[in-house]
Design a protein around this nucleic acid. Structure first.
Lengths: 217, 217
DNA sequence: AAATTATTTGACCGTTTGGTCAGGATCAAC
DNA sequence: GTTGATCCTGACCAAACGGTCAAATAATTT
């Protein structure tokens, strides 16, 4: 009742400086962790990238592992959002097309976030392990039921829903995680917005219609 | 002519001990690099895993980077072999099915080799960059022509060959690179041989036939 | 078995790492 | 403009790092 600006719990306030610097550190850390993994990243490098002194980084995040955890948590929601939106009452083709589109968009807009997850999983998911087996598993289970329902009502071919979801994850995240390989093989410097539209068309066409010609043979 | 057991060039011989230890070190290094990336891996850990002293590891591989390079090179051929075998004169469906099968088999038999490549690419491919833009690019270009020929002769739907290849790479390597995520989401401890057969069926069905039901609607 | 070569390691070095600390600078409230 | 909290940093530390070296041990050759 005395101070209306403060939050309800004792130490819950955030200075403008605090908010700005924490964001700057998290951005820098995301890039560095994505490039070198947890073990290969150094606090010095993160500090340099955030244009701060190392002790100042430690002022906001006591340990390197806290920083790593914070980066992972910050990106979890945005990483998951597209799957959550799969609508059981929508048209299957349209829903899946939309899902692929959103996942690809995420790859284009947040490549480092995608790489953070990739390195974490590649390294055995030491931090995310529990989360994967609980929240994510439950969510995928629910969405797999949606897909199975589409199959049971004859609107989708009979495929394993889990492996379909993995296929879409793999295909869309590939363009964020393996950018150097994709650009080198294609002989480009980077992947333009137009190229991402071509990717979306190709993926949707293959996954929905398949490679074998329709209507004949 | 004096010594029949030796190789032709001066220092080209390899002791049994040498061959055995180099292999042991490379195996250990492959695992450690795959788990921690180049920067996060330590020579100590590699030595411990190979059950050797650190100086002895350096006796066989002068620098950590030499070891990393050797591990990458050792797995390049086996990683590429399946794509090389795509036969222009074969049946497209059968060739692609076979390709998917072989890539999946690689994921199952050599998961750490797959992860080595994944971490290397994720970290910007500092070592493999040149190779990707030259040898790999040429190979993929050649195989893309094969696929395009199949399309032009009406045996395959019109899709971008490059993105088709990327899709197959992504989907098959996913099961090696993201094992913890796959097992956690599926609620399994590991992926059995039977599960890999299910994966192969699912992938081939989706990629060849598509998700939308055929023959009706 | 003696001599030569190949293999192995404990001890060590200079550097980098994550993390601390005392104190200075800056800000907000009165 | 004084006060108290927040913010920032140079200097520092113990541990871990990649890498070296002399000396010991094991194989191999003669």
């Amino acid at each position: 009742m005395s101070n209306p600006r403060r939050g309800d719990s004792p130490k819950n306030s955030k200075t403008r400086i605090q908010a700005r610097n924490e964001a700057r550190i998290l951005d820098a850390a995301q890039t560095v962790f994505a490039e070198h993994g947890f073990g290969g990243a150094t606090v010095d490098r993160i500090a340099a990238r955030a244009k701060m002194s190392k002790p100042n980084v430690h002022y906001y995040f006591k340990r390197k592992s806290d920083l790593y955890l914070a980066v992972l948590m910050r990106t979890l929601d945005i990483w998951l959002a597209p799957l959550k939106d799969l609508d059981p009452d929508g048209d299957p083709a349209q829903e899946l097309r939309h899902y692929i589109s959103r996942k690809l968009h995420f790859s284009r807009e947040n490549p480092t976030a995608s790489r953070i997850f990739a390195t974490e999983i590649l390294q055995g998911a030491p931090v995310l392990e529990r989360y994967l087996g609980e929240d994510l598993r439950t969510l995928v289970e629910r969405k797999a039921k949606v897909i199975r329902h589409w199959i049971d009502t004859g609107r989708l071919a009979a495929v394993d829903p889990y492996h379909l979801i993995f296929l879409i994850w793999a295909a869309t995240q590939h363009y964020a995680d393996f950018t150097p390989q994709v650009t080198a093989v294609m002989g480009r410097e980077s992947l333009s917005k137009g190229e991402f539209e071509r990717i979306e068309d190709s993926l949707c066409k293959i996954i929905l219609d398949g490679l074998l010609p329709r209507g004949k043979a």
